[in-house]
Design a protein around this nucleic acid. Structure first.
Lengths: 342, 342
DNA sequence: TCACATTTCGCAAACGATTGCATTGATGTT
DNA sequence: AACATCAATGCAATCGTTTGCGAAATGTGA
């Protein structure tokens, strides 16, 4: 392993002091130097193959130029686009990102957040928070944080989220416009802001439309997984055989619901219409084509990162506490007019 | 933003020297201290909420306890499981990982590798190398590297790859065992080791089986994308209408090929059998269910990381230059007996 | 030509932790 | 009792960079 070339080596080679080299190589401090030396030093440094040591610089400046990205699980296709969105702006701004997966485990999340702190990250993008997250709130006084896709209620932590409420209401309206009156609902986990907001939106939507809501046709998933979706749909279908549609708080739940429908020898959408939320990648290739709410995954990450960069540059700068990204309905094959026949 | 508590604060508070605190908190050096002081210091440190500054420690020890993970694109579902595999062992070993996406762009890859070096990563897992990658080879003398899923031929860089050759041969044999004699092939990019190995394996397989191979039914994709798969399949289907099966070097190509078949009003597998490679997540939900080669994505990452940890602990330790992970065939619906009728 | 302002650069102290070496005090040996 | 031995801790340099401050060199104006 070769030895690294330091600022000191460059200084010796060019016959100036290390501080001069430092200044010559720093775009800000460069101004106080004669352009002649600056050129000479920059050339020599390049020629010697000098690469700054970000660790040393980080120690001195207390800025590591790294941020932590906290997500539940990169294996969940909802998150990679968010991560890319985050990195698209972070990379431009010179930041590297440390990615960690919480697996939705609170203890893990706490550990990982502490780890990020030890590593001196300049900021954190957290897409794995729970709606009442204590840990992240306590950390918020030590480092700038932006939550993405989810939020912590009443924490003051700036959040970039999707318009969950209007998404649910729009797709609910789509169902009623098709003639559905008996709509089942598979809700999201109440401990997540997405779950709570979507679930409330569903309740409101039923009320607004004068439909009735009973405990049998609205069940709440404990996790956003296909398996939960399958179980919840099973429960709805057996307790309320007269539902003509099931609105799901998330695509994965919807996929599970479709499975449940299929396994009962029913067909979606012929017998039961099903809708999702997120329009997660590849979902369009799974039959019958999920009608769902499209969110701007990449942009959620992008905007969150932009806000974070602002905050990191100047912690006192005010950023909106809630940025709500627009959603759109994408119509595919999983919704049709209700089949009340037989 | 609160001030961080340092080793110096703990020293002052306990009335000992900073070096003593350092030793007390370091599992190795702890031995040379009386257990009484060690306890006292550890307690006080915990009580004060002391958190080590990994940046400072990294500067002194020249070990940042971070590794770089280089992949083409986290949005490609092949990679998240690999990343999780890597992190599963890295996290245990106390390393954090910086994830970067090259987008398959050589220039980007070079820049990102340099960035990782500046950040003083202790090692690199690279799943984005080309088969003749100069950059990564040149960097290999500065930091331990393991390539995952792909390899750099003749570089001496340890690689953990899948048994691409036997995967292709097995699935080829599956096709001939079903009776296929006129098999088209959509190959992988020649600049990637996976492409080269799989393409050669296909050639060998045809030779072994005494089948003929012509330029019209074997085409090579420039990238592993659905779009390329579609175009390549289009070309094969129009130039060789008598092919009964298309073997694809990768699942995404296969998905594109299925699209091409569908768009010609043919059906897979009724008219054309199609096979893939990787058994990428969710692929099982896309009709008609791709018959493909399953690779151990998670384990490729895991093993690569294990080797890397070994190397980082002792660069002189020998690790196998090539670790080949077993593959298995997973039979789903996309292969049937050839339809030569009409 | 002198006093003074400016530009350009060097000096040295930080940042927080680690570690080889020196020092202290206690213990053991003869 | 004198001395070697060893365990426990302190001292200070070090990692590579940044930056406030001061010194030297240069320029300016009268």
């Amino acid at each position: 392993m070769k030895k690294n070339i330091t600022i000191k080596d460059v200084a010796k080679e060019t016959g100036v002091h290390v501080s001069t080299v430092s200044r010559a190589l720093s775009p800000n401090a460069r101004a106080s130097l004669s352009s002649e030396v600056v050129e000479r030093i920059k050339n020599k440094a390049a020629q010697m193959g000098y690469r700054p040591n970000l660790v040393a610089s980080g120690l001195r400046t207390n800025r590591t130029m790294t941020v932590g990205i906290v997500i539940p699980d990169i294996t969940n296709s909802l998150f990679p686009p968010i991560v890319r969105g985050v990195e698209s702006v972070l990379e431009e701004a010179g930041y590297a990102s440390i990615l960690v997966n919480t697996d939705g485990d609170g203890k893990r999340e706490e550990r990982l957040l502490d780890l990020l702190l030890e590593r001196g990250v300049d900021g954190i993008i957290d897409a794995a928070v729970t709606s009442q997250d204590k840990k992240v709130t306590s950390i918020y006084e030590r480092v700038p944080i932006i939550t993405a896709n989810r939020m912590v209620f009443g924490s003051g932590i700036p959040a970039v989220i999707n318009d969950d409420e209007s998404g649910i209401k729009k797709i609910f309206n789509l169902l009623v416009s098709k003639g559905h009156k008996n709509i089942g609902y598979i809700g999201g986990p109440e401990r997540l802001s997405t779950g709570e907001i979507r679930n409330n939106a569903f309740k409101e939507a039923t009320a607004i439309n004068g439909l009735e809501l009973n405990v049998k046709n609205t069940v709440f998933a404990d996790k956003y997984t296909e398996e939960e979706g399958l179980n919840c749909a099973d429960s709805i279908l057996s307790n309320c055989p007269n539902v003509t549609a099931i609105l799901c708080a998330n695509d994965r739940l919807a996929i599970g619901a479709i499975e449940a429908v299929n396994s009962k020898n029913l067909k979606c959408p012929d017998n039961i219409s099903i809708t999702g939320f997120n329009d997660t990648p590849m979902i369009d290739r799974i039959p019958p084509g999920l009608t769902t709410v499209r969110i701007l995954q990449f942009d959620v990450g992008r905007i969150a990162a932009e806000l974070l960069v602002k905050k990191m540059n100047d912690p006192s700068i005010p950023v909106p506490e809630k940025t709500i990204m627009p959603v759109t309905i994408v119509n595919r094959g999983s919704v049709s007019i209700p089949n009340t026949g037989n």
